[in-house]
Nucleic acid binder design. Structure first.
Lengths: 210, 210
DNA sequence: GTCTATAATTCGATAGAC
DNA sequence: GTCTATCGAATTATAGAC
């Protein structure tokens, strides 16, 4: 069956994305990708030469997704409290909608650290980092204005992202350690953004009487 | 070469631990385990029947390690501030010394969620959870005594663990986004426990003037 | 561009000698 | 308990027809 060339290539990429995310680099099978794409296995090599090359394309996509989630493009007109609240809720929503990507990424960081680091570096060159820099500058500014206590902007961002992503990946396992009912668990997941914001804001806001 | 039976089995387990942690379930090779253990490949099947069985033994070990790191056995005589400070520094030290285990665990949660969940459940039955329960009870108590603001003990523990483990796994990657020198990076890693404690304690401590 | 057929290799597992 | 030899299945990759 002859179809548009772009069409097959895109179908393969989409299927590869799905399979690699579920099975990881070592567990992914070319045949499974071909089946899911609805094309012949040979076409995978025709378009991408090797499994490694397909994996690299998928990895690049997840790294972009990862970085853009940390960065997030925000309106910076409002005050810092609102900026942080939006950053957290946007991050948590993005992670919730793409949880497989982040779980895959965490796994690959450990399995292929050098490969991930290289892709990460290259992706950073291309992507627009200004959004992150602007937020970090805004945090430094808030420290100077005594709106919040003295914190390292980098560490604050890392802390926020830790609270967002770790819970998203491990909450199913961690709940095993508790007696929460299904309804309670759902409520905790639902309110995670608010919980994180409170936790963070209570930590950094400056009180008048101190 | 005939050696003590226990000796070979232990060498295999140790090698399997090393290989599975580096390569994951799908990427690990029986031959590589045999080589690293210095025994014949057939012995792996003689002692463990199949690759799956060896993997399961390794997974159990990592799950125990994971749970015991969250729990940590602490002196509970001092005040809550000291308890939390010790919990954080102990967690961070444990994670630093066994970072491969936690990275492996994060990866396996995504690749084999059901298998991990099962092992997790079984391990919880065996392990002594009292240490965690005592800490959570101590947190609730502190809330009642107005030593700290109202927090969910579960979420506080999860938040602390998130801040500890996420940074340990991803800091090499995240540093790629910054201009820190090697010395600065080392200092940040070195001071992570203090940073996390400050972040947490500032968030939950109650001020007099409020 | 797409398909069939198959080469080339790798891998988990087992049989059987010692 | 340990080793050699090998099976059989799975998997990546390619050659070549259409």
């Amino acid at each position: 069956m002859v179809t548009d060339s772009k069409e097959s290539e895109e179908k393969i990429l989409k299927a590869a994305f799905s399979v690699f995310l579920r099975k990881g680099k070592a567990g992914a099978r070319m045949q499974e990708i071909a089946d899911e794409a609805g094309v012949n296995k040979s076409l995978l090599h025709y378009y991408f030469r090797s499994k490694d090359k397909i994996y690299l394309a998928v990895l690049k996509h997840t790294v972009e997704n990862f970085i853009l989630t940390i960065v997030q493009d925000l309106e910076l007109t409002s005050d810092l409290k609102e900026i942080i609240k939006k950053l957290i809720s946007k991050q948590i929503n993005t992670i919730k909608e793409n949880s497989q990507i982040f779980q895959f990424f965490m796994g690959e960081v450990w399995m292929n650290p050098d490969e991930v680091k290289n892709v990460f570096r290259e992706t950073l060159k291309i992507l627009d980092k200004s959004a992150l820099l602007v937020i970090m500058e805004r945090i430094e500014d808030a420290v100077r204005r005594k709106e919040i206590r003295k914190v390292s902007p980098f560490q604050l961002i890392v802390n926020i992202f830790s609270l967002d992503i770790f819970f998203a990946i491990l909450s199913p396992i961690l709940f095993e350690m508790t007696d929460f009912t299904e309804a309670e668990r759902a409520a905790i997941v639902e309110n995670r953004a608010e919980e994180v914001f409170n936790f963070v804001w209570e930590s950094i806001r400056l009180r008048k009487e101190e």
